[in-house]
Design a protein around this nucleic acid. Sequence first.
RNA 1: GUGCUUAUAGCUCAGCAGGAUAGAGCAGUCGCCUCCUAAGCGACCGAUGGGGGUUCGAGUCCCUCUAGGCACACCA
Length: 568
Amino acid sequence: MIDFKKTIAKSIAEAIKIDEKELETYIEIPKDTNNGDYAFPCFRLAKELKKAPPMIANDIKNNIKIDEKFIEKVEVAGGYLNFYIQQSVMVKDVLEEIANQEEYGKSEIGKGKNIIVEYSAPNIAKPFHIGHLRTTLIGNSLYRIYKYLGYHTIGINHLGDYGTQFGKMIEAYKMWGEEYDLSVDPINKLMDMYVRINELCKKDENVLERCRENFRLLEAKDQYCVDLWNKFKDLSMVEFNKIYDILNVKFDSYKGESFYADKMDEVIEKLNEKGVLKESEGAKIVDLTDVGIDTPCIVQKANGSSIYATRDLAAIMYRAKTYDFDKCLYVVAYEQNLYFKQIFAVARYLVDEKYVKGLEHVSYGMVNLPTGKMSTRLGNVVKIEDLINETIEKAKEIIIEKNPELKNKEEVAKKVGVGAIVYNTLSTTTIKDQIFDWDTALNFQGETGPYIQYTYVRTKSVLEKAGYIPKIGEVKFDNLLDETSKNCIKLIYNFENTLVQVTEKEEPSILSRYLIDLAKAFSNFYNDNKILVEDKDVQNARVYLTYAVGKVLKIGANLLGIEMPDKM
RNA sequence: GUGCUUAUAGCUCAGCAGGAUAGAGCAGUCGCCUCCUAAGCGACCGAUGGGGGUUCGAGUCCCUCUAGGCACACCA
């Protein structure tokens, strides 16, 4: 598509002697559309050119040669130079691209690059609660977006299936195994056992010691422990997969911590070779004060068993070798900020610089309840399963009220309910804490997933009524020059750019907001213009725009993990 | 205590790597369905935590204060 910004930068560069690339970064999009489509602020040139900004703007205006094919006019407004692009050219450009590209916005910019996204990573034997929603959905959408931009993307569910916690679970099972029937609702029962054993460990140091010993046995491949561990794992995966299925989340690999059980010696050896392995209070550590981290990284516990850092380091080595990654993203909550700094710092002793540079912690904020922190022990967690059921139920009620004739109500309710959850989770900046409350989660009005879906459904409905989608050659672009059409076109024009921004900032919320903006723009268009009208030319143009908006909404929503119903 | 991080309207959030008059949604009040789905559209109401500084220009950068959150060696 035409790069208007670049075109403008080029013509400014010809008028004054400043690097085109530099100029391009100065050009901005005015908030107020009265100030044009692109603007160039001249203030920063004032010192250099020793002239007042409005004079500079005037000078440029007088010297600039604009290509009237692309730019309608240039105006001086104070120290700004405002560019108004030829709307019909943009309309043509955008709609032809829609017509020619089945997957609009898809790109090859990531070709040849390998991106690992590690996300979700739940702990075995613990229930999935809304605290896990962010990592799961942020990771899922980053995965989809990278892929759409042509990157070779690997989604990894780094299951929490190893560690002392399993020593605890084994101990709990030894003590109280007969009390629980694990054939029904296993996760909650395992959870119950886990809570019990933790309480006991706090009171009784001997029990904790037995738990650690169990884990040591598990690492030593003790059959009883291994069997039990497998059992817990299988039971948990069945439950997790149900959730992933509903949320439409997929992974390429489920290699969790246990996978690295036999790959950790290599880590220790290599660190030893490099001479950075030190002993401290019986444990093996790597000192990191040289990079300003005061807390050393423990890679082996005093009793000789491994620790999570060892497994993550082994994973980095394995992934570097197996996937030759350009980026390896860890979608993990910010409580682990220091931890990731540590292992990334240790990684420089284990893998090439290229890989170290590619390691990135996508750190997101905590989810709290209005009453405060969630705590599994206090029992005030909101389980994902409950959330899903409630939102789907609510969606169904609304469907019955608003559209009683609708077929496949169940299916639509599922899409709408899940859409609400996904949007809700992905609508805010990842780093910030989120407060979960039921009123917001169950609200389907305003800036929500269902709003985006509803807008899409409207486009489908119009197209169905129209009964056809015009051929692009039959569309007279001049019929889309009004303000509301223009807003839609501009947004569609910016779609790919929006996706790129998401990957630059590892921030899916940028796409969420974009989709709301597009849905709003279309709602305005829809309200101001009758689409199906007498005048064939006008109708063709409007129907085509409707088709284009629907297409982008659907693609964009899918990249977030939101499915679109055709009717609702 | 040290480090990291957050603070924008009654509530939940935007603010395009410093630019023009700080935008939405929810809640509240009011208006719009003989017309393509009112899960919609429009209007009203209402805000940058305090204090310094850098700059032609600061919600955005720096310092400081205040208030929250997180982390700080054998849990993950």
